[in-house]
């Protein structure tokens, strides 16, 4: 089976000349379709940088990232935006919802950028919100909702364009442990339906939900479990 994501010896260096910070020092990684992997590490280990580069939000300084065999280095910003829109779904620690839009509109937004028709958008957004258990709260603003509910909107939004890859950066970081577990259980459910998931966390018990765990330290993958 082909790899969904192939990371080949990438480095990421921030800053110029003397004041450089090496966030990644040569990381290689392979994510196959249907994998549920976790990347663990202390803060500053480079795990978020790696995730951003895999998520096409950022570019590596050297080395290649291949998404379904396509080298992202040779893609334009607008092609990267398309990949983010169609192939990726993001779930962030602080939810990153558009606070002046209601739940339904938030879930619709990625489909607007994908130029989907209004009816199709509404139908799918409603379906997704029902799936995450927010059927009765579609017209509510994120500010009127709890953290768990907000994260569920974010997951519905991430799934809007039926992505290949779900990227979750500390998705339970701002949630209590019970709500966090619910979210992770839902991830497992999605994984069982064939979705590929990359999860970044610094907590062992959360990483334990994944099939494979990569440990990072000082910009390098130092250990691999599972």
């Amino acid at each position: 089976m082909n790899s969904l994501v192939e990371v080949k010896n990438i480095t990421k260096i921030y800053g110029m000349e003397a004041a450089t910070v090496k966030a990644l020092r040569g990381v290689s990684l392979n994510v196959k379709h249907g994998d549920f992997i976790a990347i663990m590490g202390a803060s500053g280990s480079g795990k978020s940088t790696l995730l951003n580069i895999i998520g096409c939000l950022d570019r590596s300084t050297t080395g290649d990232v291949l998404i379904e065999g396509k080298n992202t280095n040779i893609l334009t910003d607008s092609q990267l935006a398309e990949i983010r829109n169609e192939k990726m779904g993001f779930v962030f620690q602080n939810f990153n919802l558009l606070h002046h839009l209601n739940a339904l509109e938030n879930v619709e937004t990625p489909m607007i950028y994908a130029k989907k028709k209004r009816n199709e958008r509404l139908e799918r957004a409603k379906m997704l919100l029902e799936r995450v258990g927010l059927a009765d709260r579609m017209k509510h603003l994120p500010t009127q909702m709890s953290g768990g509910e907000r994260q569920r909107i974010a997951i519905a939004r991430a799934l809007a364009n039926s992505p290949e890859l779900l990227i979750a950066d500390e998705p339970t970081g701002n949630l209590d442990s019970k709500t966090g577990e619910e979210i992770l259980d839902f991830f497992v459910l999605l994984k069982n339906e064939g979705l590929t998931i990359i999860l970044v966390t610094h907590e062992e018990n959360i990483a334990a939900y994944a099939d494979k765990i990569f440990h990072m330290k000082d910009g390098l993958i130092v250990d691999e479990e599972g």
Binding site: L57, L98, T109
Partner: peptide, 15 residues
């Protein structure tokens, strides 16, 4: 932040 979110979920420069 809103611009960042929009970009993350697929907005292009033109959008």
């Amino acid at each position: 932040r809103e611009i960042g979110i929009r970009k993350a979920i697929g907005a292009k420069r033109r959008d």
